[in-house]
Amino acid sequence: MATRPSEAQGYELRDPDVRLMLQVRDDDAAAFEELVLRYQSRLLTVLENLCGKRDLAEDLAQDVFLRVYRARKRYIPTSKFSTWLFKIAGNVASNARRGMARRREVNVEGRESGPWGVNPMEQMALAASGQMPTRQLDKSEVRDVVQQAVAGLSDRQRLAVLLAKFEEMNYADIGEVMDLTPQAVKSLLSRARATLRGSLESYLQSGEWTQPKLQQSGPTR
């Protein structure tokens, strides 16, 4: 979609990161470094929660920045910089997931049923089997429970949730990242929240969770 000059100028005026990216387009290395510094932790946070592994998230984040660099000469500010960056991140993560799924088809058998690793819902079903003793969860265990619940979302739901939660994006921006209309984002997030609520229901009601014996750490960690 062509961008009107005034629209591009609007983003340039409003978004300091767009201005930095335009400097990158003009081969300003310092500006690129500055963008990396500004976004590295934000990107890693979303990617780690998306794929569940720190080392993989770091690889993906580097791939995102490489793509940003390679795309610099074609860059036209049609949205906020963060929206553009996370759109690239979503594509990178999606490609990686497909690649991993293909490799797993060939190489892996057995328990790892989800695209990023162990199916968290299976783990949660195990946990909720009622055969394990219940006890109050400590902080790290609560985190594991929440991570399992998030990992149980579909990839698209998970990305939308993470963008809303961590990046505080509105529906329009999430839609931009994911090529969806705001109405579609509304439905997607609604289903995601309902799923999360269902997954966390027993924890929400009692503050307790069954602790599965086999689950020494989070499902994808």
């Binding site: 890693l44 609560v142 985190r143 991570q147």
Partner: peptide, 10 residues
């Protein structure tokens, strides 16, 4: 509860 998710610092 999603506040419990890790915030990764590079």
């Amino acid at each position: 509860l999603l506040d419990e998710l890790p915030h990764t610092e590079a």
